[in-house]
C-alpha cells in the first residue's frame, strides 16, 4: 500500500543519517514513540513472526511441526509456486515496463514542445489509480467478457473475431497485466513529464548545436535527465505488480488452470483456504525479499549511471 519512492529518494538525497539541525535532544525518542510502537507492533513484529512461522509445517488449526527451510525449498520445487513467481515477473512487464515506455515516449515529445493544459491531462491520467482496485477489476471483467464484452464488440467493428480474454490460457495473464498497465501508465506519464520540464533547456540547446537529431537528443539529454524519475516510476510500479492481489482475486481467481496465479494469491489461498500456513508465510517472506532486491537493484543502477 505505501509508496516506495522514499527509498530511492532518500538514497539520492544523501545519507538519511545526515545531521539534522539543532543539538542532540533526548526528547526525540518521545516524539518517535507512538509511531514506533504501532509500527513495531503491527509491521516489524508480524514480519518476524512470519519468518518464524515460515519454518514450520502448520495447518493453522493444530500444532505445527518443525520444517526448517522446507517451505522455502518448496518455493523453488513446487510447480504451482514457481509458476506463480514467474507470472509475477511477467506481470512486471505490464505493470512497470510498459507504462514506463509509454511515459518515455510522451516525455521525449514533450522535451521538444511545450504543451498547454498539462494540469488537466494529469488529473485525468491519474484517475485510474484513485478508483478502488476492486472497481477497476470489475470494470475490466465486464470489458473482457467473451460474449458481449466491450472489447470484443469493439474488435467486432473491425471484423476481428472476439476472444475469451480471461479464459484463454495464453491470453489470461497478459489480459490481467494490461489492467495493470491501465492503472499505472498515468503515474509514469505524470512523473516523467514533470521530470522532463526540469531539465535545463540549455542542455537541449547544446545538443542541437552539436547537430543532434530528435532521437539522439532523447538518448543524450532526456533519458539521463530523467534517471531519477525513471527509478521512482519503476520502483513504485514494481512493488504494485508484485503485491497484486485484489485484481487476480476478482477477475480470475488464478485461473484458467493456474495461468494467472501470483504469489500474493498463493499466500491467501494457502494460508486461509487449503491450510498450508507455513508455506504461505514462506511465500510472503520470499516476496518481500524479492521486492527488496529489485527496489535496491533499480536504485543502484540509477545511482551508478550518474
Amino acid at each position: 500500500m505505501a509508496v516506495a519512492a522514499p527509498l530511492e529518494a532518500a538514497s539520492r538525497e544523501g545519507s538519511p543519517g545526515e545531521r539534522p539541525p539543532g543539538e542532540p535532544r533526548l526528547v526525540g525518542y518521545l516524539y518517535l514513540l507512538p509511531a514506533f510502537v504501532v509500527f513495531a507492533g503491527f509491521v516489524l513484529y508480524p514480519l518476524y513472526r512470519a519468518a518464524y512461522i515460515s519454518l514450520w509445517d502448520w495447518d493453522g488449526l493444530t500444532a505445527g511441526t518443525w520444517a526448517g527451510f522446507d517451505n522455502y525449498a518448496e518455493v523453488f520445487t513446487d510447480e504451482d509456486l514457481r509458476a506463480a513467481f514467474v507470472h509475477a515477473l511477467i506481470l512486471l512487464l505490464f505493470y512497470a515496463v510498459l507504462p514506463l515506455l509509454i511515459g518515455l515516449a510522451l516525455a521525449g515529445v514533450m522535451a521538444r514542445a511545450r504543451v498547454r493544459g498539462l494540469a488537466f491531462f494529469r488529473a485525468v491520467l491519474f484517475l485510474p489509480q484513485v478508483v478502488a482496485m476492486v472497481v477497476v477489476a470489475l470494470m475490466w471483467k465486464m470489458i473482457y467478457q467473451p460474449t458481449d464484452g466491450a472489447l470484443n464488440r469493439f474488435l467486432g467493428w473491425f471484423g476481428i473475431e472476439g476472444r475469451s480474454w480471461l479464459g484463454d490460457f495464453n491470453l489470461a495473464l497478459p489480459s490481467v497485466g494490461l489492467v495493470g498497465t491501465y492503472v499505472y501508465f498515468g503515474l509514469a506519464m505524470v512523473l516523467l513529464t514533470a521530470g522532463v520540464q526540469k531539465i535545463p533547456t540549455s542542455l537541449y540547446d547544446a545538443a542541437r548545436v552539436d547537430g543532434a537529431g530528435p532521437f539522439r537528443e532523447f538518448l543524450a539529454v532526456t533519458l539521463p535527465g530523467l534517471r531519477g524519475e525513471i527509478a521512482v516510476a519503476l520502483t513504485l510500479t514494481t512493488i504494485y505488480a508484485l503485491r497484486n492481489f485484489d485484481l487476480v482475486y476478482i477477475t480470475t481467481s488464478g485461473g484458467p488452470g493456474n495461468a494467472t496465479s501470483v504469489p500474493a494469491f498463493q499466500v491467501f489461498s494457502r494460508a486461509f483456504e487449503s491450510g498450508q500456513v507455513g508455506s504461505a508465510a514462506a511465500v510472503g517472506i520470499t516476496l518481500t525479499v524479492i521486492i527488496f532486491i529489485i527496489s535496491l537493484g533499480i536504485n543502484r543502477i540509477a545511482e551508478r549511471s550518474t
Binding site: P46, A50, R243, A281, G284
Partner: peptide, 14 residues
C-alpha cells in the same frame, strides 16, 4: 523505510 517495502501479504498470516 524497510516498512515501506513490506507487502501486506508478508504479514497477513501472523
Amino acid at each position: 523505510l524497510l516498512g515501506l517495502m513490506v507487502p501486506t501479504e508478508a504479514i497477513i498470516v501472523p
